[in-house]
């Protein structure tokens, strides 16, 4: 089923173009990563999909409907980046109110509020005010509101920004667990996280679509790469020298973040030889990835 159909989308704020000539089609399925530097237009795109912003030009269909259409209630959901709940009502009352607006009876809405708080592992905040929660807990409550009524498509705008690792893990695990029953589109700057969560990547830059592709098992030219992260006390220079000596390795490049990218001859299988060489030399590694990392592919040149 078509998840999104966007054609020639443009959004201007005065003379500034936040989105320009954006065309994109996505199908329902595993999580999709929406990536781009600050100001790339990710939040603007999410806001248009949710109907918060009106496009300046172009057409948008979400689940076959126009953004803001009443037919999307209960089918499309979102966790807006900086939205905060009303500080004067308890979390439970607000979630119940939202659920009622989705067409549930008062009793069903109350049960649904309890259910989604259970899903995000925060049943204890039902009667608490949002202001008394930590930032990470508020993010999880925001995720809970996005899960009300089991939507088909959930947009998560920076779901883990500024929160501590335990909360990040809970949100990440939930996305993995729930992605079997709903499609997530996740915007984030944390490329490692997106690489683990998502199968498809959509890359925006300066409001334009730069590339879309798969972050799953490497295919095509990416099959010829290995990325390795050494243990912190490993000798980088020695590694480079040893790696180049492994048969099938064409070149070794040290990436900005300290990982090594090995380009191999097409068709060659070098990982076992490489690991054997490292073991013999006493060099320890932390991670070996087939293909190039997302960060390397997008920004590594």
């Amino acid at each position: 089923m078509s998840l999104l159909r966007i054609q020639q989308l443009e959004k201007r704020y005065g003379s500034v173009k936040a989105l320009a000539n954006l065309s994109l089609e996505l199908e329902a399925g595993p999580p999709v990563a929406l990536i781009g530097p600050n100001g790339a237009g990710k939040t603007t795109l999410f806001s248009i999909l949710c109907g918060y912003l009106k496009p300046s030009a172009g057409s948008v269909e979400v689940l076959g409907e126009k953004p803001g259409s009443s037919a999307l209630v209960g089918r499309l959901s979102a966790m807006p980046q900086d939205a905060r709940m009303d500080p004067y009502f308890s979390v439970g009352r607000q979630l119940t109110h939202y659920a009622r607006l989705q067409g549930l009876s008062r009793r069903e809405a109350r049960e649904e509020a309890v259910r989604v708080l259970d899903v995000v592992q925060l049943p204890e905040v039902l009667s608490m005010k949002p202001e008394s929660l930590s930032h990470g807990m508020r993010k999880r409550v925001s995720l809970a509101q996005a899960l009300l009524g089991k939507p088909e498509l959930v947009l998560l705008d920076e779901p883990t920004a500024g929160i501590d690792p335990p909360n990040v893990k809970i949100i990440r695990d939930l996305v993995v667990e729930l992605s079997a029953s709903m499609t997530f589109i996740v915007s984030s700057h944390n490329l490692d996280e997106l690489e683990r969560l998502c199968q498809t990547v959509v890359y925006l830059e300066k409001g334009e679509l730069k590339q879309t592709g798969s972050v799953a098992a490497p295919t095509g030219e990416h099959e010829n790469y290995l990325t390795i992260r050494l243990a912190s006390n490993a000798d980088d220079a020695l590694f480079a020298k040893l790696a180049e000596s492994v048969e099938g390795v064409e070149s070794v490049v040290r990436l900005a973040q300290g990982d090594f990218r090995l380009q191999c001859n097409p068709g060659s299988v070098v990982d076992e030889d490489l690991l054997a060489t490292l073991r013999t030399a006493g060099l320890k590694y932390r991670q070996l990835v087939r293909g190039r990392t997302l960060e390397d592919r997008l920004y590594g040149g």
Binding site: C50, G51, Y52, A78, A83, Y98, L101, Q102
Partner: peptide, 10 residues
Amino acid sequence: RGSLRYLLLR
């Protein structure tokens, strides 16, 4: 506050 965005989804 942004809570209008939660409401407009519904």
